[in-house]
């Protein structure tokens, strides 16, 4: 990976807030002095991330940490409330017309549940062929052969193009979702829990497919998953999110070998692994706090075994603790 190259994707201070507006009755109540407030969820809170061309960036975190929202912003399905996402140096949100369309085609999303992301009333050939036809990726007369080629690339028999999604198994549906994303020749793929719903043996097949496609088509991935084992295996670098913030980021193997942030340490300790001996599960205390009302300072401090006074007042910044390794923890400054 060329270090001096500009990253293909650069996020600066990206935040996403979801606001539940007050209804008329609540507005009226507030007018008369009630303390009702608008509810604001900080799904993503000031995230800086860069993805280099050709790399796989793994994004891990538990439910509600904002990893999917971040992926949807990258894919252009929702816009950031603050900050910028630059793709090849251009701010995605500010692009207009043809340039916006080209950028949107370059970044494709592969969803978790193929059954809810594939139109059940379309045949597979139409699902995969629609976008290349509409966006004139290939001449209209070549669409059919192009679809066959794409299906073969993901390991599906082109003879199945006349079938409907419900006639396929879960693993095959995952392949259809990947074929649809590849059909417009993207350079960047956001995989949002793309293997989470699959059985272990099928999951291995799809992971192998992702790794093969990356080599063949020179793809860059943002690989979002809650499954640490999967992310460790496929990623070059990993970013760990907790309640909307990136708490640690670095080389995949280094991060797994020596997690720095107490949250990453806890996550890795709880990861079930094959052990020949019986193990005793220890517990990380407490539950994930509600993103409606996150703790002040470091979001992790109520569950952190090392928390001290500063953690509950001051937000730790994501700082470089070793070359290419970032962590957001006050402990690093103490030492």
């Amino acid at each position: 990976m060329a270090e001096n190259n500009a990253p293909i994707l650069q996020m600066k201070g990206v935040s996403k807030r979801f606001v539940k507006e007050l209804d008329t009755a609540e507005k009226a109540a507030r007018f008369f002095g009630s303390s009702i407030e608008e509810q604001i969820v900080h799904a993503v809170d000031g995230v800086d991330l860069a993805v280099q061309k050709g790399e796989v960036l793994g994004l891990v975190g538990e439910s509600g940490c904002g990893k999917s929202t971040l992926g949807r912003m990258v894919a252009g399905l929702t816009t950031p409330s603050e900050g910028s996402i630059r793709f090849y140096g251009e701010d995605i949100a500010s692009l207009k017309g043809d340039a916006a369309r080209r950028a949107a085609l370059q970044i494709q999303l592969v969803f978790q549940d193929p059954m809810s992301s594939l139109n059940p009333r379309l045949r597979v050939g139409e699902i995969v062929g629609e976008a290349p036809r509409v966006h004139k990726v290939v001449p209209r007369k070549d669409v059919d052969s192009y679809v066959d080629e794409t299906l073969e690339r993901v390991g599906l028999d082109p003879a199945m193009r006349k079938r409907y999604p419900h006639q396929f198994s879960g693993g095959q549906r995952a392949r259809i979702g990947i074929a649809r994303a590849l059909a417009v020749n993207p350079s960047f793929i956001v995989c949002d829990e793309s293997v989470a719903a699959l059985d272990v043996s099928i999951q291995a097949q799809i992971l192998n497919l992702f790794m093969r496609l990356r080599e063949e088509l020179d793809l860059t991935y943002l690989f979002i998953s809650h499954d640490l084992g999967v992310v460790e295996h496929i990623s070059d670098r990993i970013a760990v999110m907790y309640l909307g913030r990136v708490v640690e980021m670095g080389d995949a193997q280094a991060l797994f070998a020596e997690p720095n942030h107490p949250y990453t340490q806890a996550l890795l300790a709880e990861l079930p692994t094959f052990e020949v001996k019986r193990r005793t599960y220890s517990t990380i205390k407490g539950e994930i706090p509600s993103p409606l009302n996150p703790p002040a300072g470091c979001h992790f401090h109520p569950r952190c075994p090392h928390a001290f006074a500063r953690c509950s007042t001051e937000r730790p910044r994501l700082t470089e603790i070793a070359p290419g390794r970032f962590s957001a923890c006050h402990l690093n400054e103490q030492a």
């Binding site: 043996s201 291995a204 192998n208 790794m211 999967v230 295996h233 496929i234 692994t273 094959f274």
Partner: peptide, 14 residues
């Protein structure tokens, strides 16, 4: 098939 503990980025036995 389980990726954990396998060599990094190797193809998995499927």
């Amino acid at each position: 098939s389980v990726p954990h503990g396998k060599p990094h980025r190797s193809l998995l036995q499927q």
